[in-house]
């Protein structure tokens, strides 16, 4: 524990990866497939907020709200304009939808480059404070925002799926859509709600993390993969599982460069991914079914 700063870095990155994983999980539960456009929503959030504040001179809070609305609309479009028509034509198959959302990831990436330019932009500081000194470590405003956002999002989603009707219907719709329709559940409303919430969470995560070192149009793919791995490693047995997956990824991202070399961190991520795909494809926390 000599290097407290490293542990704060682990927590910050774990929160970011976990938030992306949580966004994946919402759509996995509600629609039954991995929406790889999550990384693009996060990138669009960070990039749009930065661009709106810089180019249009909007106040930070207004730029953030506008970026969240844009990401939410984009997520809704993914469901209504892309996934739903494709699943209608393919009899509800998930593979065509999966391919479509991957195409959506690349399409959003290119359109973002066209709309917002291909330069890196400085992220927006949501909490402008002097860095705090905690046990000799430096804790910045963006770090605090990312951690707070993770706490609020994970608690919020956990409560939402238990307390609200739409939340409780989420898993039923994702597990068996035809059965849910036969039962009269509003499957379309539930799915689109899951997409929009996931899009907004991913975008907010992108906005908060962009304040650390900026954001650019080509970040979406990398973030999509890290969020996906956070869910794969953590599992889908608990709404908090992606945070555990994110923590493991963050530990690798920080301590592999520290003890070995920065050039090995990508190999370490690849190795852990292969291990989980091969030996524990359902992740660390799986759903327990009582018979």
């Amino acid at each position: 524990m000599d290097h407290v700063q490293l542990w704060f870095s682990v927590v910050e990155q774990a929160c970011f990866f976990g938030l992306l994983g949580l966004a994946y999980m919402l759509i996995l539960e509600g629609a039954g497939f991995f929406n790889f456009a999550i990384g693009a929503y996060a990138m669009i959030g960070g990039l749009a907020a930065a661009s709106f504040a810089k180019s249009m001179h909007l106040p930070v809070w207004l730029a953030v709200i506008a970026a969240l609305v844009l990401a939410g609309l984009l997520a809704a479009f993914t469901e209504v304009g892309v996934v739903r028509p494709i699943q209608r034509r393919s009899g509800g198959a998930r593979l065509p939808a999966l391919v479509a959302v991957i195409a959506m990831l690349f399409a959003i990436t290119q359109v973002a480059g066209l709309l917002f330019g291909r330069k890196q932009l400085a992220g927006q500081q949501l909490l402008v404070i002097d860095p705090l000194q905690i046990a000799g470590a430096y804790v910045s405003g963006p770090m605090i925002v990312t951690m707070a956002l993770a706490l609020v999002s994970f608690v919020g989603v956990s409560v939402w799926v238990r307390v609200t009707g739409t939340g409780r219907m989420l898993r039923a719709v994702g597990d068996n859509r035809p059965a849910a329709q036969l039962l009269g559940l509003p499957t379309s409303r539930v799915r689109i709600t899951a997409f929009v919430i996931a899009g907004v969470i991913a975008a907010f995560a992108g906005i908060s993390y962009a304040a650390k070192g900026g954001v650019s149009w080509d970040r979406g793919l990398g973030w999509a993969l890290l969020g996906f791995l956070a869910l794969v490693i953590g599992g889908s047995g608990s709404w908090w599982a992606p945070l555990l997956g994110g923590l493991i990824l963050a530990l690798l991202q920080v301590f592999v460069p520290f003890y070995l070399s920065g050039q090995f961190s990508d190999y370490a991520i690849l190795a852990i991914a292969l291990i989980f795909f091969a030996f524990r494809p359902r992740g660390l926390i799986t759903r327990q079914v009582r018979i």
């Binding site: 290097h3 700063q5 490293l6 870095s9 910050e12 990155q13 993390y209 650390k212 070192g213 990398g222 991202q253 920080v254 301590f255 592999v256 460069p257 520290f258 070399s261 920065g262 050039q263 961190s265 990508d266």
Partner: peptide, 17 residues
């Protein structure tokens, strides 16, 4: 002598070393 990926999003480990 530290070498880090150009797309790094965190360099705290390198700075600590």
């Amino acid at each position: 002598d530290e070498v880090a990926p150009v797309a790094s999003t965190d360099l705290v480990a390198q700075a600590t070393r």
